[in-house]
């Protein structure tokens, strides 16, 4: 029942958010629309980690691997096909296959949590160096030159499905990105409320017990990891659509760390938390970047330390706990709220 009422709230919130997204271009100037578009694309990326870490208990330190692969898969296929629709599908498919292979060896090989973090981080750095060294005419896939550290400029942005001649305006691209964020959020909500979602939460809580009940934790973790890869890859396509450009920095350490900070500050074990953390911190970093007095990374580090010490659960779970205690409800919160993540 709690799940159902929770879903109703999520649906109402999503409808309101969708209305705001559609209305935004009438009230906000183009520069800000562009800002919001990249924020929303990154929020999809934050959701991918929020899901696999907060619910699957898998701390992937290299979620940018899938984000970057999705971005490059989109760029290369959009240039070759001249149509964004199959390119978006490949931006999801390529990271999923990569996540399946990487995840299979890690999860079925019995790699423990900490080493999984180290390996995924290392993989993202390997990809960074690999793509970085693809400068020159030799490295091209079809029409698309990979361009090494210069990246790929002039990537075709989204067009209407089935009509490559109709390129979306920036306002339309914003709506697509914003609505995509809402749909990914709702899709994950439904997934978590399903039996599959219950079981992956149970496995996060106690893998031994889940196995002793007949569930194979490995396959559930692998599927969770692959879903995370798919969403991160999709976020990569949204990101390239925003800037019409992709470069190897997309795999770099800085972004990998930032995603984790978004999730910690927004709140692990919720879905809205990572979105809030991502939007808030990106907005802050942009604001700080507009002045010269303080360094953005310094502020980001300070905020992280303050949160880990004072608000360890993150924004969303803390707000929910406050609201629940105001209402004086002794009963437990919905399962999404009751999360203890292995760190």
């Amino acid at each position: 029942m709690q799940i159902l009422t929770g879903m109703k709230g999520a649906l109402i919130g999503s409808v309101i958010a969708a209305a705001a997204i559609i209305a935004a271009p009438f009230y906000v100037d183009l520069f800000q629309i562009m800002q919001l578009t990249v924020f929303a694309a990154m929020a999809v990326l934050a959701l991918s980690l929020g899901f696999i870490w907060g619910y699957g208990g898998i701390l992937c330190f290299g979620q940018t691997s899938f984000f970057g692969l999705g971005a490059y898969a989109y760029a290369v296929s959009a240039i070759n096909f001249g149509d964004s629709t199959p390119a978006i599908l490949l931006a999801i498919l390529v990271p999923v296959v990569f996540a399946a292979l990487l995840g299979y060896f890690m999860i079925y090989g019995g790699i423990s949590d900490v080493y999984l973090g180290v390996i995924t981080l290392t993989v993202s750095l390997i990809l960074f160096n690999l793509v970085n060294s693809t400068a020159g005419d030799f490295y091209k896939i079809g029409e698309a030159r990979l361009g090494g550290f210069n990246g790929i400029p002039g990537v075709p942005t989204f067009n209407l499905p089935g009509n490559p001649g109709y390129i979306l305006t920036p306002e339309q691209a914003w709506m697509v990105t914003g609505i995509a964020l809402i749909l990914v959020y709702l899709g994950l909500r439904v997934l978590i409320a399903s039996s599959f979602g219950r079981i992956i939460i149970a496995i996060r809580e106690n893998e031994t017990r889940a196995a002793l009940l007949g569930y194979d934790p490995r396959i559930y973790k692998l599927i969770t990891f692959m879903i995370g890869g798919a969403i991160a890859g999709f976020a990569g396509a949204l990101y390239v659509n925003w800037g019409a450009f992709v470069s190897p920095t997309i795999f770099a350490l800085g972004l990998s760390a930032q995603i984790i900070i978004w999730v910690i500050i927004g709140g692990r074990g919720t879905l809205i938390g990572p979105v809030i953390g991502c939007l808030l911190l990106q907005w802050m970093v942009t604001e700080i970047g507009a002045q010269q007095a303080l360094d953005a990374n310094f502020i980001l580090g300070a905020i992280l330390i303050i949160f880990v010490l004072l608000v360890p659960k993150g924004i969303a779970p803390t707000l929910r706990d406050l609201a629940l205690s105001r209402l004086g409800r002794g009963e437990t919160a919905p399962p999404e709220a009751r999360v203890k993540v292995k760190t």
Binding site: R198, I199, A202, E205, N206, L212, P335
Partner: peptide, 20 residues
């Protein structure tokens, strides 16, 4: 005891029953 600590009593049993 190997139980799912963050889940409710009902959910613990339900996960077990759901397998079959």
């Amino acid at each position: 005891p190997n139980v799912f600590n963050a889940l409710s009593v009902q959910e613990n049993l339900w996960i077990a029953a759901r397998h079959k």
